[in-house]
Nucleic acid binder design. Sequence first.
DNA 1: TTATTTAGTTACTTATAGTTATTAAGTTTA
DNA 2: TAAACTTAATAACTATAAGTAACTAAATAA
Lengths: 115, 115
Amino acid sequence: MNNLCPRFEKAMQLFGKRWVGLILFELLKGPKRFSEMEAELPISGRILSERLKMLEQEKIVERRVYSDFPVRIEYLLSDKGLALEPVIKDIQGWAETWITPEEIEAEEDASSSKA
Amino acid sequence: MNNLCPRFEKAMQLFGKRWVGLILFELLKGPKRFSEMEAELPISGRILSERLKMLEQEKIVERRVYSDFPVRIEYLLSDKGLALEPVIKDIQGWAETWITPEEIEAEEDASSSKA
DNA sequence: TTATTTAGTTACTTATAGTTATTAAGTTTA
DNA sequence: TAAACTTAATAACTATAAGTAACTAAATAA
């Protein structure tokens, strides 16, 4: 068991965690605040907080505190995080080619209570 | 909420599911049997079965039954699945550059009961 | 001093994953 | 013919992760 490349396995453990892809997608557009991400992603504050903390620990995301009123905290990608851009772009490209509108509709119906 | 590209969101829902990356990584090497994947991946049979069924429904994986003794079932990537190769390769490349040996050791220690 | 704002956290419920034992279909061998 | 073997699952159960709603902390404004 476990004859895989350990680096790949570790990478998939990060990247394959729920919401991580969408968080990176958002942050590739530029720095974001907690509440912006909470509003733009269908993710709960608790989990967003947990994921950002994890991504910060993994040095993929940086957290910057500005002592404005009210306090402003920005999350942005580090170099390690920015280096994931090709992955995100590839997934986008793949999705545009291979995900059909029907699949998306089925998805939206299933989560219509949230939308 | 939910101003994301719905195709990307759907793609991440598949790809960001635990074990999916590792299953695709294995299948990119060529067709595999259930028991081979079960042996090579640190994943339970129940979840492997569940994931393969999902990937089959999504037309990413094909399931071929051979009436040998004992019954032989092969899983292989469809064109849609093969199209994910660049994503996997990018993640591999990223992992080789950015995942440090210390991170992997920490990981191995945490799951030493399985290894 | 009370209210307001952002960025969380805590306690609790629901959903997903993991483990172990069992089943089904087919084939060999006693 | 029936007991045993093999692969590919599935069922029942336990453990872990995610979701929800209400609350907290720090700083300022009214």
